[in-house]
Every structure is written in structure tokens, then in C-alpha cells.
Design a protein around this nucleic acid. Structure first.
Length: 929
RNA sequence: GGGCGGAUAGCUCAGCCGGUUAGAGCAUCGGCUUUACAAGCCGGGGGUCGCAGGUUCGAACCCUGCUCCGCCUACCA
């Protein structure tokens, strides 16, 4: 410190996050044992595609701002990192990358490739998060394919099976013909397509010609009924008739249902096996015939007659042509219609029927709405999305996927009677394909000893929905190595001490230090105790005691409210009756410059690594802090560059302080004016008295010597009898601090950084430093006392301001802490230091009125200099200040030293002879060069 | 169809529980470099607060309607 620094271009800014010199990661071991826990259910990103862009950097940073703040507030941070690497997204990625045809590769080969890509992905992510300064505890890492997650998912399955909240059903399900798997409603998005509504002629058994409108003529062969509205007098006479289907010539009954719109088409509706959700509903309610013509491959089967083997899409064209040849298409109308597509591949989904495992959810919507009401939503309007989704769910949750790479079901079937044999908890995790059930050799129903393994895997959300349970080691997983599985004992458990009292008690660093020293480093390691869980007791007692569960915060993106968030609520309600987390923080999207959502596939992708390389991680985080919670944010390289400017400004502002403290070396007791030098003498005495070093983190290297004559804690800042500008600065700082804390408490980090930034630029740099710095150019000892006062104030304000910046700008704040502030402090990292306590006694409203006079004169002075083409540091011989207001005159006289310093004037002449031309202005100034 | 969010300077945004002359950054124009910072500092110009009504002494802010953008949601086959 003290050397002139041009902004380094190294990455990360000033400080290598991988080195030990920079405490940027979670270090909860140093937090006091009695601190309350703040646990974070960190979103596990899909590692498969290494698709991270600045939008991801944005959302992870935003959550992390809050977490760093909470850490400084004294919370014991439980901040794990998960990687979502099982399931369809990974499979799709591997399929694309290796151009795999699923039917030509073995399950094992495919899984190996998935695992390989997973490993690569995890490393890529970890490197980036570290470069970005994301302070997760890497000892708390999980991957959704690891043993712990498999065990947790399987345990959940078993427990819900026992509670009859998992069911095996054979009913129509949503099917992706491309991925060849069943899906859940949440995997589907509705897209609008251009379609054609065909009016097709049918014939009734009494030879009446009937026109029926449909968008899916290819399903004629699957038609099982014709519907009309019971109030539609046009068709009541068809009650007992049969209708002959064109081309196929089979006949179907006429049925009536209120849901049929008389206005739509001709008021007749063709119901098939199953063209859409409405068909399924009528099939269920009216117990219709079943005529399946679509195969899982998406091709028509033998029941489609001549159309066998043709894909659904092509069949439509062929059948329309054939109908036209028969002159049975009476009209065509273009329309927009909504089609469900698989959100992973964009393929239009179909309904087919195969046995699947389901978690019933339709009957418990009320519970889920109620749970949603219990959560604190940030921002509040995001709750609407949850409510609407829950209210609109149509299907129970199908958790079976006909895929390879996922968590297996802990299930076998009796080869004779098909009875499911469910694994017991003590044999989890289990893969039924490679092992037999341990608890039984024979089918409990028929005594057969031949079992068929369930080959389906679970929906990826079956695991992701368990993240709070994974984090709290609900499944009692004991890892055989140290690298996987959580160590929840890192969170201390001591409820006997009132947490809030202790946090209040740690008002400053000295107090903090005292407490730190009293920490019982013998952190309770309870890993082994976890083994003693009563396996039937699934009430999360351990995690609850450690306050991991329910988790404190769930940060996540808006588009997975209906999946991750909803399913986690479902699981938590079913397993515990409780909500899985208390607070939900929903981030917006990173957009490209033109306002489109950033994604790799669209090519509007900005790689965070490049931005970090060019501008530093702190600068990127500065950009990320610009978006209010829940708001989308356009990527702007200019804003990142502004972030970098802020870093340089902070660096130089601290350098000013450090340099001037360093120059105290040139002071000596005999050149100080005794009348004004009590404080300086005290400092100098300290510097000369070895015992005085006890309050320092002192060692004898040169760097420490530079600052050894300064002790910011010699006297409390409130007792220094400060001039108005210093009181004003402290007042403005305390107000900033208060606001900033309030913003953080309500998750409004963007308002927080704006508030600190405004204070730092406008109040501290542009005005306070400009007013005061002239004093530091004075060599006369007469100014020594004023210098010491100012240094104390600058130390207090700049250090605490840096703390307010620390959650946003972890690298530079740590670097400045280690290279400068740490000479006077004891904590090992600024990120483990205590958030400043608001000190009302430092508020001095009258100082604001007084300093406003200085600021008015300074503003006039700056304009005058600009008009006179004088540079801002040019010394003027005389500054004339005129005012008609006696109070202002008095203030000017009282503050004359600071006004002269601010305006670089050698002499100040004050006059009340306001004969001037300044109109309504209270003060008028002029210069004599 | 229903809902949510947004529309303020050339650009990106703040301000919004009503209250002087609507702010910031960037861009632009002009000036200024030994004394924290030229990757800097100082100053200037620039706005019918989406449109139309209403409430009020007073509206960017509250109410009603509309337009456009983004998103969520929806069985019209």
C-alpha cells in the first residue's frame, strides 16, 4: 500500500482466489459456535453442458451478496454446492456430443460417457465459481448422481410408497417420441403453432351426413366417440346412433358432454385415444373404448391399417390427401393452436399408455398452496407464478423415465405375478439391475423366486426436489471417502446461548477478537453420531437442531418455480409436513444487449471467464448487482467497466489514507503544537511504547512499521470533538449504513450497493476528501492535530465503507484489508469481520446544515474555476464570500479553515455587503488570483 | 382468454405509501494534469415521466381505460 497503483490487469482483481492469502471461501470454522445458522439451498446447475454465461454468474452472485452479508452479520453459514448431473439434460448432451443412437449403445457404455462428461462439467463449474468469488463451502459438495443423492431419492421413494404416496399405474401419460420416455406436466411447454382445422364428413347409421371439425385427421383410426353438447338441439336425435369413421369404416357411439362448445366448428367433437388432454379426460370419465394407434416411436401401428409405420406428422399429410380424393374434406380453416412440446428437445408430445410410477399431487393442491403462503417470497410478485401453476396442475406427477442415466428405482417385480418388491432402506443405494433384494428371496404374494428389475430411472426432479434433505443428510448416508457426502457437523449446535445477544455484543473488532479467541476450536464432529440415527425416525431432528432444515434460503431462477421449487415443496410436505425453506429469492435473467434471454443455443452468449479476465470478477459482480431482485438484466460491458472504475477509485481512496498515515513517521513529539496535540501525542506515545502494540496485530516487518504510529482505536471516534466536516461525514456514513442494512434485510441488494456507491463517490471522495486534502499538504505542525482527527475519521469511515462493499466486491475488499487495515485489526479476513453496527450517537444533524454552506461555496468555486479555466487545485490568493444572511456569515467564519482548504484559497474574506448580482443565491463568491 | 412485470434524458436505469426546479451512470460538448485517482477531476447541454381521462390545492407517483414490449398461465377439438 502506498505505492502508486495503476489498475492491475490481472485476474481476479488484485488477488488470487486460489491462493491462501485471500480468504474468499466460506470459513465457518471461525464463526462463533453460538451463531444462528443461515442455510442455503443452492441451485445445483446442470453440469452436463458447461453452458455457463454471464447470466448464471449474475444470479449466483446475487444470492451470494446476501450470503456474504449474513456471514458478516454473524450467522453461521451453511452454503453447499450441488451439481445436477443425472437425468435427461445430461443424456441429451451426451447424445448430441457423441452423436449417439440410444438403441445402439449399452446402458453401461452410455452411463460411463455421462459420468465422464459430468466430471468435466463439475471442474469447469468449480473453477468458474471460485474465480467469481462464490463463497460456497466446497466440503459440502454433492452431485445428484452420487451415492448420497441416490440413497436420498430412493429413500424418499420407499417412504412415500409406504405412505401410499407413490403408486404404480397404467394409464395414458405424456410421451416424447424423440426422447422415447414418459414425462410429467412440468416437462412440457405449450407453444402456439399454425395449424389447419379440417371439416370432415362422417356418416351416421341412418345415413345422415355430419360435418366434424378436427386438427388431427391422422387420428381418425383412434376415434372412439363423437361428442356433442347435451343442450345442442341439432344433435340430440343422434343419441342412439353410431357414426361411421371415414376411411376406417368402424363405428363409434355419440355421447354428450357439457364441455363441448356448440359454437366451435359444427358443434361436434371427435374424441380419440388420445389426441390431447381433453380426450384423456373424456376417456376416463366416460370409460370410453381404447384404440391405440401411436407407438412409442411416434409411428402409427397396425391398427392404422395402410398407414402403419408412418410417423404421426407424415400420416397427417397422407390422410388429408386420401380424404380429399374421397371428397370428404368439406372445408379447411387456418388457425393457431397450442401444442405441448417437450422442453428439452422441442418435440410435440403424444399420449400413450404404459405402466409408470406416480406421486399423486392433484388431491393435495390446497396443502401446496398453503405451503406457498408460508414462504417469504422475494420479490413478492413471484409467488403468483407458483400459485397459478399449482392451481392449474392437471396430472399427478409421473416420476418414471424410460432412460438410462438417472437414479434407479429400488424396485423389482415378481416375474410370475408382477408384484413389486421394494428394497429396504438399509440396502440403499441400490441398482436393481445389478443386485437382488437383500431382505427377501421370494415373492411375498406367490412365492416365486424370480425377479425382474425395474429398468426405468427416476425423473431428475425426483432427486432435485430432495436438495434440502440431501443437505441435511436425511438419508444418513455415510461416505466411505471424504470427498463426497456432507459433513453437517460443520454447523455448530448450541442453543443455550441467546444468539441475538451475542451478535449485539460483538460491536467492534476488538470485541469480535475477544470472542474469536474464546471460540472452542474443538468443533463437535458428529459424523459418527449420524450413524446412530433411528432409521425409522425420519423427522430430521439432527438437521433441525442445527437449523439446516428447513433451510433458510432458497435462491433460484424464475423458470423452475414449477419444477424445482414446487416439487421440493411437495416432497417436504409429504415427508415432514413442513415447508422445506423459509425464504425464496427469485432472480431474473441475464439478457443480451438487445434484451433477449442469453443462451448458448441462441449464440448471444457472453462467457464470464472472458469478462473476468478483462475486467476482474469484482467488476462482473458489480454489474450483477445492478438488477433489482427478480428483474432481468441486460449485459453491458460498459457497466462492467464502470465496476472496474469503482474498484480503482476505492483502491486510490484507501491509498490516500495509507500514505498519510505512513507520513506520520515524519512527526515527532517536539514539532507538535502542545495545545492541540493531545491525540497525536497519545498516538506517538503508543508508537514508542512496546506495550502499546498489544492492540495491534503487530509484527516487525517493514510494512507494519510504516503504520506503527497510528492507532485508530486509541480513542473512540465519538469522543474526538470533531470539526463539522468530520461530524458530517460520520453522520452521512451512519445514515448510509442504516439504509444499506435495511436494504440487505429485504434482499434489495441493488439498492444497497447503489446507496454505498453514492456515499462513497459523492460524499466521501468528491467532497470530504476534496475538502480535507489541502490540509495534508500543509507542512506546519499547526495542522498535525487536524490531520490526526481526519485520519481517525477516514479510517473509521473508509474501513466501514469497505465492509459495506465487501459482499459485492470480495476480492478488492479482501486485498485492501490484508494489505492495509489488517495492520490495525485482528480478524483474518474482512469477510469474517463484523458488519458495522449503526451508531446513533455519531449522528449530528447540525453538522449537515453547516457543511451545506461549505458545499455551496465549493460548488460555486468549481464553476468559477471552470469559467476562469483554472485547474481545480490552482491556489487562489483570496476567496471572497458574500452573504446577506448573518447565520451563514457566522458559519463561514467558523468553518473558514475547511473552506479555504476546499477552495484551495490562501485567504478568505467574508462580507455581508451583498450588493451583488447573484440573484436569489444565499452566498456569492469571487476570486482574486 | 386470464394474470404478472415493464414503458422516465440518445442508451441503461433510479425515483413511485402525492409535496420546491424529475436524478445517476454511459454517451455528447467544454475546461483542467506535480501533491489518492487521466482507467482521473470540474463544468455544460439534454426529459410533454407510453397515450387518454379522472381524483387532488398539488400527480412520474393514486384511480379508470387504452397502446406497445417481456413473461407466466389457459381443454376451444
Amino acid at each position: 500500500m502506498g505505492e502508486r497503483q495503476n489498475a492491475p490487469m490481472t485476474t481476479p482483481f488484485f488477488c488470487d482466489s486460489n491462493s491462501n492469502s485471500c480468504s474468499l471461501n466460506a470459513e465457518n470454522a471461525d464463526a462463533p459456535v453460538f451463531s444462528p445458522t443461515f442455510s442455503i439451498d443452492t441451485p445445483p446447475p446442470y453440469v452436463s453442458s458447461a453452458h455457463l454465461h454471464v447470466g448464471h454468474a449474475m444470479s449466483y452472485s446475487q444470492a451470494e451478496f446476501i450470503i456474504r452479508y449474513k456471514r458478516m452479520k454473524g450467522f453461521n453459514i451453511f452454503y453447499p454446492m450441488g451439481f445436477d448431473d443425472n437425468g435427461l439434460p445430461t443424456e441429451r448432451y451426451v447424445e448430441k456430443k457423441y452423436k449417439i443412437n440410444k438403441s445402439k449403445i449399452t446402458r453401461d457404455e452410455f452411463i460411463d460417457l455421462c459420468l465422464k462428461e459430468t466430471k468435466i462439467g463439475i471442474n469447469t463449474y468449480k473453477e468458474l465459481w471460485q474465480a467469481l468469488g462464490i463463497s460456497v463451502d466446497w466440503d459440502l459438495t454433492y452431485s445428484t448422481i452420487d451415492g448420497k443423492c441416490r440413497k436420498t431419492s430412493q429413500k424418499s421413494f420407499i417412504e412415500l410408497y409406504d405412505k401410499k404416496l407413490v403408486e404404480r399405474r397404467n394409464e395414458p401419460i405424456i410421451w416424447c417420441p424423440l426422447c422415447r420416455t414418459s414425462l410429467a406436466q412440468a416437462d412440457i411447454t405449450i407453444e402456439e403453432f399454425d395449424g389447419v382445422l379440417y371439416d370432415i364428413e362422417f356418416i351416421s347409421s341412418s345415413e345422415e351426413k355430419l360435418i366434424i371439425s378436427t386438427t388431427r385427421p391422422e387420428l381418425l383410426g383412434a376415434c372412439v366417440a363423437i361428442y356433442a353438447n347435451p343442450s345442442d338441439s341439432r344433435y340430440l336425435h343422434l343419441k342412439d346412433e353410431l357414426i361411421k369413421i371415414p376411411i376406417y369404416n368402424h363405428t363409434v357411439p355419440v355421447k354428450f358432454d357439457e364441455s363441448v362448445e356448440t359454437e366451435y366448428g359444427t358443434g361436434l367433437m371427435m374424441v380419440c385415444t388420445w389426441g390431447d388432454a381433453e380426450d384423456v379426460k373424456k376417456w376416463k370419465e366416460h370409460k370410453l373404448e381404447t384404440a391405440i394407434i401411436i407407438e412409442p416411436s411416434g409411428k402409427l401401428n397396425e391398427k392404422a391399417g395402410d398407414y402403419k409405420g408412418i410417423s404421426v406428422k407424415d400420416a397427417k399429410k397422407v390422410i388429408v390427401e386420401d380424404l380429399k380424393k374421397l371428397s370428404l374434406i368439406k372445408n379447411e380453416k387456418k388457425l393457431k393452436h397450442n401444442v405441448g412440446i417437450h422442453d428439452r428437445c422441442g418435440t410435440a408430445v403424444e399420449f400413450i399408455q404404459t405402466p409408470q410410477w406416480f406421486i399423486p399431487i392433484l388431491d393435495y393442491k390446497d396443502k401446496f398452496i398453503e405451503a406457498g403462503n408460508k414462504l417469504n417470497w422475494y420479490p413478492a410478485f413471484m409467488k403468483t407464478r407458483y400459485d397459478e401453476w399449482v392451481q392449474n396442475i392437471k396430472w399427478d406427477w409421473n416420476i418414471s423415465r424410460q432412460r438410462f442415466y438417472g437414479v434407479p428405482f429400488p424396485v423389482w417385480y415378481c416375474s410370475r405375478c408382477n408384484q413389486p418388491i421394494i428394497a429396504k432402506e438399509d440396502e440403499l443405494p441400490v441398482d436393481p439391475v445389478v443386485s437382488r433384494p437383500k431382505h427377501t428371496d421370494i415373492c411375498p404374494i406367490c412365492g416365486n423366486n424370480e425377479f425382474i428389475p425395474e429398468k426405468d430411472v427416476m425423473d431428475t426432479w425426483m432427486t432435485s426436489s430432495m436438495t434440502p434433505f440431501i443437505n441435511s443428510n436425511w438419508a444418513n448416508f455415510v461416505s466411505d471417502d471424504n470427498n463426497s457426502g456432507h459433513n453437517i457437523s460443520k454447523i455448530n449446535n448450541n442453543d443455550n446461548i441467546s444468539n441475538s445477544d451475542n451478535i449485539k455484543g460483538r460491536a467492534d473488532n476488538i470485541a469480535n477478537d475477544a470472542i474469536n479467541k474464546n471460540i472452542n476450536n474443538d468443533i463437535i464432529v458428529k459424523n459418527k453420531n449420524i450413524d446412530n440415527y433411528n432409521l425409522s425416525d425420519t423427522n430430521l431432528n439432527e438437521a433441525k437442531n442445527k437449523k439446516i432444515f428447513p433451510m433458510t434460503l432458497r435462491p433460484q431462477a424464475q423458470e423452475i418455480i414449477r419444477t424445482w421449487l414446487f416439487y421440493t415443496v411437495v416432497k417436504s410436505i409429504y415427508h415432514t409436513g413442513n415447508i422445506p425453506f423459509e425464504n425464496v429469492m427469485i432472480s431474473g435473467w441475464g439478457l443480451d444487449k438487445s434484451g433477449k434471454k442469453m443462451s448458448k443455443s441462441l449464440g448471444n452468449f457472453v462467457a464470464p471467464e472472458e469478462i473476468i479476465e478483462k475486467y476482474s470478477a469484482d467488476a462482473l459482480r458489480y454489474w450483477a448487482a445492478k438488477a433489482n431482485l427478480g428483474q432481468d438484466l441486460r449485459f453491458s460491458e460498459e457497466d462492467v467497466a464502470n465496476g472496474r472504475r469503482l474498484l480503482i477509485k476505492i483502491w486510490n481512496a484507501v491509498r490516500f489514507l495509507a500514505t498519510n498515515i505512513d507520513s506520520l513517521k515524519s512527526f515527532s513529539a517536539d514539532n507538535v503544537d502542545n495545545a492541540d496535540s493531545e491525540l497525536l501525542n497519545a498516538n506517538l506515545a503508543d508508537a514508542n511504547n512496546k506495550d502499546g502494540y498489544n492492540n495491534y496485530n503487530y509484527n516487525n516487518d517493514d510494512d507494519n512499521n510504516k503504520y506503527s504510529r497510528f492507532n485508530p482505536y486509541k480513542e473512540d471516534i465519538s469522543k474526538l470533538n470533531l470539526p463539522a466536516v468530520d461530524s458530517w461525514l460520520l453522520t452521512e456514513f451512519e445514515k448510509t449504513l442504516k439504509l444499506c442494512g435495511e436494504y440487505f434485510e429485504s434482499y434489495e441488494y441493488s439498492s444497497a450497493i447503489r446507496t454505498v456507491g453514492d456515499f462513497f463517490y459523492n460524499i466521501y471522495c468528491d467532497n470530504y476528501l476534496e475538502i480535507i486534502k489541502n490540509i495534508f499538504w500543509e507542512e506546519s505542525p499547526l495542522f498535525n492535530n487536524r490531520k490526526i482527527q481526519s485520519l481517525n475519521v477516514m479510517y473509521y469511515v473508509s474501513f466501514n465503507t469497505l465492509k459495506l462493499f465487501a459482499p459485492f466486491l470480495p476480492f478488492i475488499s479482501e486485498e485492501l484489508y490484508l494489505s492495509f487495515y489488517k495492520h490495525f485489526e485482528t480478524g483474518k479476513s474482512i469477510h469474517l469481520s463484523v458488519w458495522p453496527e449503526y451508531r446513533h450517537e455519531l449522528i449530528n444533524e447540525s453538522s449537515i446544515k453547516q457543511v451545506n454552506v461549505i458545499l455551496a461555496i465549493l460548488e460555486s468555486s468549481r464553476k468559477l474555476r471552470t469559467n476562469l479555466n483554472l485547474h481545480q487545485n490552482h491556489k487562489v490568493k483570496r476567496l471572497f464570500a458574500y452573504s446577506a444572511d448573518e447565520q451563514i456569515i457566522e458559519t463561514i467564519q467558523n468553518l473558514s479553515a475547511d473552506i479555504m482548504s476546499a477552495c484551495r484559497a490562501e485567504e478568505l474574506v467574508v462580507s455581508n455587503k451583498a450588493d451583488f448580482r447573484a440573484g436569489d443565491a444565499d452566498i456569492y463568491i469571487s476570486f482574486e488570483n
